[in-house]
Structure formats: structure tokens, C-alpha cells
């Protein structure tokens, strides 16, 4: 039995039921149209059915038939997620030009790459490249940060 499949299946069933109930209140106009709720309700029903199939088939599978997803170095994955989310938050508050070099340097260093010159060079080149391509050539303004607006 794969726990993830059961968990995902249950979550999808709850979601589909919620969608079904919400969609019941959607309006239908005229006699030929099936209304705004028809498609969401159909999709939700099929999704419930498929989720049930997935849950039951995960019970039926013999143990050991499928190897559990092996040892993932979770620490590194979580570190990467945290860094990325901090980066996005920092872009929102402090803008692109402060956050990006900081994020790149932190990331490169924390993941164990210790050659200073290439790391700094890459950081500068990437920041400059994005600046030139987006702000100068395409004239798309980059986030300035809500602190500076």
C-alpha cells in the first residue's frame, strides 16, 4: 500500500465534493444550455471515481512489489525550498536587484560550492543579463520591492 496514493486520493475526493457542492449553485439559462455547473460537476464526479480506483488499487498491490521512493537527502531539498521562498519574499519586499545577488551567493555557498571568483562572476552576469534583457531590451520593469515604491 502506498500511503501517498491514499492520502492524495482522499484529498482529491474532498476537493471534488466541495467543487460539486459549489457548482450546484451555478446558474443555467435557457433550455438548450447545460449551465455553468454541468462541466465542473461532471469532472468532479469522474475525479471521485478515479480517486477511489487509485485508493483501492494501492491497497491491492503486494508489499515489496514497488520499492518505496528511496532515501532522498531531504535536508538539501528543504534547504532549497526555504531559500527559494525567502528569495521570493525578499523580491516582493526589497525588489529584484537586492534579492537576486544575495540569493545566488547564499545558494551557491550553502550547497557547497566554494570557489569565490566563479560564484561572484556568475551572480553578477546573471543579474546584469536579466537587467539588460528585461528592463532594457524588452522594457519590462522588474519588481522594485514594496519598500521602495
Amino acid at each position: 500500500m502506498k500511503k501517498v496514493d491514499v492520502f492524495v486520493g482522499l484529498a482529491l475526493i474532498i476537493l471534488s465534493v466541495a467543487a460539486w457542492i459549489t457548482a450546484s449553485d451555478f446558474p443555467a439559462v435557457g433550455d438548450t444550455d447545460v449551465g455553468a455547473g454541468f462541466f465542473p460537476k461532471m469532472i468532479a464526479s469522474v475525479l471521485i471515481l478515479l480517486s477511489l480506483v487509485m485508493i483501492f488499487s494501492s491497497f491491492r498491490r503486494q508489499p515489496g512489489n514497488e520499492p518505496e521512493t528511496g532515501a532522498i537527502p531531504w535536508s538539501k531539498t528543504i534547504l532549497g525550498f526555504i531559500l527559494t521562498f525567502l528569495y521570493l519574499a525578499l523580491v516582493y519586499f526589497g525588489g529584484f536587484y537586492i534579492s537576486t545577488p544575495l540569493f545566488m551567493i547564499c545558494f551557491i555557498w550553502l550547497f557547497g560550492y566554494r570557489k569565490t571568483i566563479p560564484a561572484v562572476a556568475v551572480t553578477v552576469v546573471v543579474t546584469l543579463f536579466v537587467y539588460l534583457v528585461f528592463e532594457k531590451v524588452l522594457q519590462v520593469p522588474l519588481p522594485a520591492g514594496v519598500f521602495f515604491e
Partner: peptide, 26 residues
């Protein structure tokens, strides 16, 4: 990969922002 991965993430951020100039998309 330590260098490649952050570059990709920066480009993901910039790219999704640039379409509508909206942080919601990010």
C-alpha cells in the same frame, strides 16, 4: 549544479513576473 539551479530559479521568478507584471503570477 550548485550554479545552474539558482540561475533556473531566478529565471523562473523573472519570467513568471514579466508576463503581467504581477507578483500574483510568481
Amino acid at each position: 549544479k550548485q550554479i545552474l539551479t539558482p540561475i533556473i530559479l531566478v529565471l523562473c521568478m523573472v519570467g513568471s513576473y514579466a508576463i503581467n507584471n504581477s507578483f500574483f503570477d510568481v
